[in-house]
């Protein structure tokens, strides 16, 4: 709607719709918002205490084994691919004992034809990965991590990253945030069965190349914050060799 008022800029503007020249008193530019936004003020801080309270288990572990399995045929003969990931816990804060092996079941894996079945929300694992795991509803949820990919942190070369290669750093208040990104082959290149999943992530810009905080500092932080948590090894582990049926396959796939 056209305003019926006089603007201070109006005399210099052409309201006919034809191209006009910029007004002298105005400036027009395209900039990086970081130049007028205080850096880092909107970064999401990790609340590990709250996460640990909700999670069934919290531990550092190395992926010892990956098993790809199909669910047993349901009443209509349908199966789904799943990935079973087994960690050996190195340190534990909840639900797992150090040295204990924990196997978790994820949707996606390898199809009967040998294809990699990749699910958009789920992390991918490789034997030898070292992770900080916040386990949640193992054997029940399609992604048995708290917040799915957010429930897995990576320990790579003694530094801490999120599942996408985001570098975990401490902000000015000592809280943990993602302060940058690294293109890490450990993150971007994963073999699913015999299929190489090789991502090309273009993460140029500020923060690129930033290392995550040292693992020791990070686990020390968890030591200080995840106190008084239930430490008994009560976490449910799943058996990759036990047949299982995905119950939803028995129902009509639409309402």
């Amino acid at each position: 709607m056209t305003l019926s008022l006089t603007l201070s800029l109006l005399s210099a503007c052409d309201l006919s719709g034809a191209p006009v020249s910029p007004v002298d008193s105005d400036t027009l530019e395209v900039v990086d918002p970081a130049e007028f936004e205080p850096a880092g003020t909107d970064l999401e801080r990790f609340d590990f205490t709250a996460r640990a309270e909700v999670a069934d288990a919290v531990f550092v572990g190395e992926v010892e084994r990956i098993d790809y399995r199909q669910s047993s045929p349901d009443s209509r003969g349908g199966t789904l691919p799943f990935t079973f990931v087994t960690w050996r816990a190195e340190r534990a804060w909840k639900g797992v004992a150090p040295g204990q092996r924990v196997t978790a079941r994820f949707v996606g894996g390898v199809t009967p034809e040998g294809y990699a079945s990749v699910v958009s929300e789920l992390p991918l694992f490789q034997e030898g990965d070292r992770d900080v795991i916040f386990l949640d509803q193992n054997g029940l949820a399609g992604c048995p991590l708290l917040g799915c990919a957010a429930g897995r942190l990576r320990l790579i070369d003694g530094r801490v990253y999120d599942d996408e290669g985001g570098s975990l750093v401490a902000d000015e208040a000592g809280e943990v945030v993602v302060g940058g990104w690294r293109n890490l082959p450990e993150v971007n290149v994963v073999t699913v069965g015999t299929v190489l999943v090789d991502r090309r992530v273009d993460q140029d810009g500020p923060g690129e190349g930033a290392d995550g905080m040292p693992e020791r500092a990070f686990t020390g932080l968890l030591d200080s914050r995840l106190v008084n948590l239930r430490s008994a090894p009560t976490t449910r582990s799943v058996n990759p060799d036990a047949p299982f049926v995905v119950r939803f396959l028995d129902r009509e796939p639409s309402r």
């Binding site: 034809e113 958009s120 399609g142 992604c143 190489l196």
Partner: peptide, 13 residues
């Protein structure tokens, strides 16, 4: 996959 929407893809390399 625990979300409001999800995509599954099957692929070779």
């Amino acid at each position: 996959c625990g979300s409001d929407a999800c995509c599954w893809t099957s692929a070779t390399t």
